[in-house]
C-alpha cells in the first residue's frame, strides 16, 4: 500500500514538472496544477457534478437491469439443458462482438436521451454477468447436488440454498467486469450522441482545445470507476466470507 502510494506521488510530481521542463505544449499535456485549477473551477465544477450525475444515472440503471437480466437468464438456462445447448453458441458469438459498435444504432432507435445510453450499458453489463454466472452454476460440485437430492430438497431449495451461494464467487467476477463495462458503455454512448453526461463534456472541452478540462473530466471519471469497483469488491468480501484471500 505504501509502495503503491509512493508510485502515485512520483507520477504526480513528474506530471507537474516534466511538461514545463520538456517544453511540451500546454494543449498536449498541461501540468498537474493547471488540471487541478480546471477541476476546481468554481464555474465549471457544478456542471461537472451535474453531468457526472447524469452519467452515473445511466450506469446505475443500466447495471441494475443488465445484472438482473444476466442472473435471471443464467439461472433459467442452466435449468434447461436442451435450450442451453441451442442458445449457448449464440451467447459466445454475441460475446465476441465489440458491442459498443452497436451504440450508433441505439441512438437511431432510442434517441439522444437517457434510454439509448441505458440500453448500451445494459448490453455491456449483461454478458459478463450471464457468462460468469453460467460458469459458476455449472461448476457446482455434483456430490453436493446429490446430497441435496438424497435429502429430498426441492428444485427451489437446490437453487436458493446451494447453486446461487456456490456460484457467488463467479457472480462477483461477472459483476466486476460488468461495472467496468458499464462505465465504458455510458461514455461511448454519450460520445455517439447525447445532450448531457461526462462524455459530452469531454467532447466539448476537446472541441475548444481545453486540454486541462479534458484531464479534469478524466480524473472524475476514473474516480467514479474506482469507487464503483471498490464498492463491488467490498460487497464481495462482505458476502463471500468463506473465500480465502
Amino acid at each position: 500500500m505504501v509502495g503503491a502510494l509512493a508510485v502515485l506521488a512520483v507520477v504526480l510530481i513528474l506530471w507537474q514538472i516534466l511538461p514545463g521542463a520538456l517544453n511540451v505544449p500546454r494543449y498536449v499535456i498541461p501540468p498537474l496544477s493547471e488540471v487541478l485549477v480546471a477541476l476546481t473551477d468554481p464555474v465549471a465544477f457544478p456542471r461537472y457534478v451535474q453531468n457526472a450525475a447524469a452519467t452515473m444515472t445511466e450506469v446505475g440503471l443500466g447495471l441494475l437491469i443488465g445484472v438482473v437480466l444476466g442472473l435471471a437468464l443464467a439461472i433459467t438456462l442452466t435449468q434447461l439443458p436442451r435450450v442451453y445447448g441451442i442458445v449457448f453458441p449464440y451467447i459466445v458469438a454475441i460475446e465476441s462482438i465489440p458491442k459498443v459498435a452497436i451504440a450508433p444504432l441505439f441512438v437511431i432507435w432510442f434517441g439522444f436521451g437517457l434510454p439509448s445510453k441505458v440500453v448500451v450499458v445494459v448490453l455491456l453489463a449483461f454478458f459478463p454477468v450471464l457468462v460468469n454466472t453460467i460458469h459458476g452454476l455449472r461448476n457446482v460440485d455434483r456430490d453436493l447436488i446429490n446430497l441435496f437430492r438424497v435429502n429430498g430438497a426441492s428444485r427451489m431449495q437446490i437453487q436458493v440454498r446451494l447453486m446461487i451461494p456456490a456460484a457467488m464467487p463467479q457472480i462477483f467476477s461477472g459483476l466486476e467486469l460488468a461495472v467496468a463495462n458499464a462505465m465504458i458503455g455510458a461514455i461511448v454512448a454519450e460520445f455517439v450522441g447525447a445532450q448531457q453526461g461526462l462524455g459530452v463534456l469531454i467532447l466539448q472541452a476537446q472541441g475548444r482545445m481545453e486540454t486541462p478540462a479534458v484531464f479534469a473530466l478524466l480524473i472524475i471519471l476514473s474516480a467514479l470507476g474506482i469507487f464503483l469497483n471498490l464498492f463491488v469488491r467490498l460487497a464481495r468480501k462482505w458476502i463471500i466470507t468463506w473465500e480465502r484471500t
Binding site: D143, L147, L162, P165, I240, T241, W242
Partner: peptide
C-alpha cells in the same frame, strides 16, 4: 462422499 462436501458459507 469422497470429499467432505460441506457448505463453505
Amino acid at each position: 462422499f469422497q470429499k467432505a462436501t460441506l457448505l463453505p458459507w
